[in-house]
Write a protein that binds this DNA or RNA. Structure first.
Lengths: 305, 305
DNA sequence: AGCCAATAGTTGACAAAAGCAACGATATGC
DNA sequence: GCATATCGTTGCTTTTGTCAACTATTGGCT
């Protein structure tokens, strides 16, 4: 895990590195006749015509006096005009003249080129990642409360994802071999082949587009529902998603009229074991096996609904 | 898709927003007796003791004259000492005094607090996302030139990925239903169950960790190899990956001693059809079916090896 | 209506920050 | 040992930013 100190250090590292980058970008404006502040002023006026000097200063965090002087210079150069709006004789509504517009366009193009120059050497894939990461940062800072993880029914591709994550995670964490992924694929294929919305369900825990966990219920006959393929991604553990998925499955099974629910798991999955125990499941059988490579103890659990 | 113009605009938006954020952070240093530049100088000297004024200026992009004066001020305040290293009488090796160290520590703590204040109101999940995104941006910019796509053998999780992408892509592009994903899962499970490195193979086209395409060869009996599950991700199309995968499969089949290669596909997959034609495959059979929902024309292709 | 406080912007004086160019001291290459 | 380059310093200048006093206008209040 990453503690707060390390988070802060990494953000500070990022701030240093990135501001230096941006500094390099802004140097591109050096061969224009405008200072960075002037360019920012032109940009803001172009974006929000009839803006007042006051709000401009607020946005750019400029001293009122300094701003006033700078604006006067821009007016004298014929790039900006100010009018006294009828409704408030104190304010001055700022606008770009035609010359101001074209100066802004040139600046804007230069700034665009500078960014393009930064993105240029990156591969198309890296560019997308970069833009996505920038969006993420803004979203996080905007404090857009991170979309809550929620349960949804399965969609095309979800079965494959379940197989992939089971295969990759159990291989990495417990050294399961390919037979495990094969078994999961068979279970998933079987689920899709015989999917009956009244008798079976597959729940995906997702946050936005990101899949965080899975669980499914299938008909085991005799009024017994079988819980399968319960998985929570490592980065999403500790959020109660396992509980959420399990509750969703129990609810579904009850509504579907099942009397009991059973599941099969392996003893090394201690977190899962706790989850099942607190959810009222009872261990009914254990048997050693080596179906997936390492020596394991398979467990059957059950509970009434 | 996102075109370059939009990427640039979003990065520019990010730059504006983020620099403003950092500006706010730096204001935290205002109640220290140091200017931002002095603080940066202290930071660099603390990080790299015995640094020369020249490289300091290079790192911080400061005018040599300005830097010289600022350093003199810091020396007079007793925070920095400079020594003439024996090996080069022109340079001056800069170090913090004890007082300098403690001043730096205070600055460092203030900066850390400022960042902590920025991260504070975010949720723990958002903090992690933010840090991860910042790392991503630096990694992208570090311009680790995007690794070339290459073929590799399958690994744990790859079969699941193949199933996921087949399921999701064919559903989105051709409206295939769940039976298709089920079929792919069965094929994949079968492959894993009966995988024999001498008789079958699965190739994954990958760029770094990112999977871009797949193809597999299985034994169809009578010296015939069957090509299955050829897929290239939309964002990686046009790079010749399909060709690469196909050649890899043909090479494997020849080395494994197969006499012929067959494959089954559907007529709507026109890009794939061209790929097979140019690779020397010949259409031997067509049959209408609706196995995956829409009415399709299945095609069998074959070629000698 | 008339007064007062608040708001929007301007101006002068000044300080800090930054840039430029000339210069001295030392090192390096031929 | 001389030309040339490097490292740093200093004087001078411009740019940038700050502060406080000031004018003009508005809006609320009695």
């Amino acid at each position: 895990m990453m503690d707060e100190t390390e988070q802060i250090d990494r953000i500070r590292l990022f701030n240093r590195a990135y501001t230096r980058r941006i500094g390099v970008l802004d140097e591109g404006l050096l061969d224009s006749p405008f200072s960075l502040t002037e360019a920012r002023i032109l940009f803001e006026i172009a974006t929000a015509p009839d803006i007042s000097a006051g709000s401009l200063g607020g946005i750019l965090d400029l001293d009122a006096g300094y701003l006033s002087r700078t604006l006067k210079k821009l007016e004298q150069s014929g790039l900006v005009v100010a009018s006294r709006p009828a409704e408030d004789g104190r304010r001055r509504a700022l606008r770009l003249t035609a010359a101001g517009e074209s100066a802004f366009k040139a600046l804007d193009a230069a700034s665009r080129d500078a960014v393009a120059g930064m993105l240029g050497p990156l591969g198309p894939q890296n560019r997308l990642r970069l833009v996505a990461a920038a969006d993420t940062i803004l979203a996080c800072l905007a404090g857009s409360p991170e979309p809550a993880a929620r349960l949804r029914a399965h969609q095309p591709g979800d079965m494959g994802w379940i197989i992939e994550r089971h295969g990759a995670l159990y291989a990495a964490e417990y050294d399961f071999d390919a037979r495990f992924e094969a078994l999961v694929a068979e279970i998933a294929a079987d689920f899709l082949r015989h999917f009956d919305p009244a008798r079976s369900c597959c729940l995906i825990a997702a946050r936005g587009d990101e899949r965080l966990g899975s669980a499914m219920v299938v008909d085991a006959g005799d009024g017994v529902a079988k819980l399968r393929l319960v998985l929570v991604e490592p980065q999403a553990r500790g959020l109660g998603l396992g509980r959420l998925l399990l509750e969703g499955c129990l609810d579904f099974a009850r509504q579907a009229g099942y009397r009991r629910m059973t599941l099969w798991t392996n003893s090394i999955l201690t977190t899962a074991r706790q989850l099942y125990e607190t959810a009222g499941f009872q261990l009914v059988d254990e048997a050693e096996h080596s179906d997936f490579g390492p020596r394991l103890i398979g467990q059957s659990w059950t509970r009434d609904l």
